[in-house]
Amino acid sequence: MIDALVVNALLTMMVFIVLVMVGQRNLFAVVILGGIYSFLMATALVALDAVDVAMTEASVGAGISTVLLLGALYLTRGDEAKPMRHSTIPLIVSVAVGAALVYGSLGLPAFSDPNAPIQTHVAPRYLKETLSATGVPNAVTSVLASYRGYDTLGETTVVFTAGAGVIALLRRRRRIREDEER
């Protein structure tokens, strides 16, 4: 039960932080809050036994993303967001989405239900045979790299796409000329 309480407390804190972020107009503050949000998320993920995910979220969400955002803020000198536009339609859209989610969530399995379909179908086999079939005790690694290794190839390609895309977008013509001449 303690796990559930910890998780729920963390979630509540995250909700508060996000609500502050929504209202906050200073972009710098928003980015920092975003970093804190990511740390809380990472902590919650640890509490949810997702240590690999937590580690990634900490390094990516709190680390890389924050650095990128700060860098972009520095480049765009964008320190001041204009007042909000009138926001009835976005509000209606968001609430409608939320309503659909709540409606759907009512039928979802309860937290930590050992008989939920995700605990009984597909996943048990990973846990049962990860050591014997792949020699890797970390089931996350074996699923990531072997059972669903193809997804991870796609994921790596996504990273590659982003990298090549940023090169394409931000490369200066002048400097490249020199590169090619060299």
Partner: peptide
């Protein structure tokens, strides 16, 4: 060590 504990190529790359 990603085989035995948390971590792997992605996290290592980021570090």
């Amino acid at each position: 060590h990603g085989d035995f504990g948390p971590g792997g190529g992605f996290q290592a790359g980021v570090i």
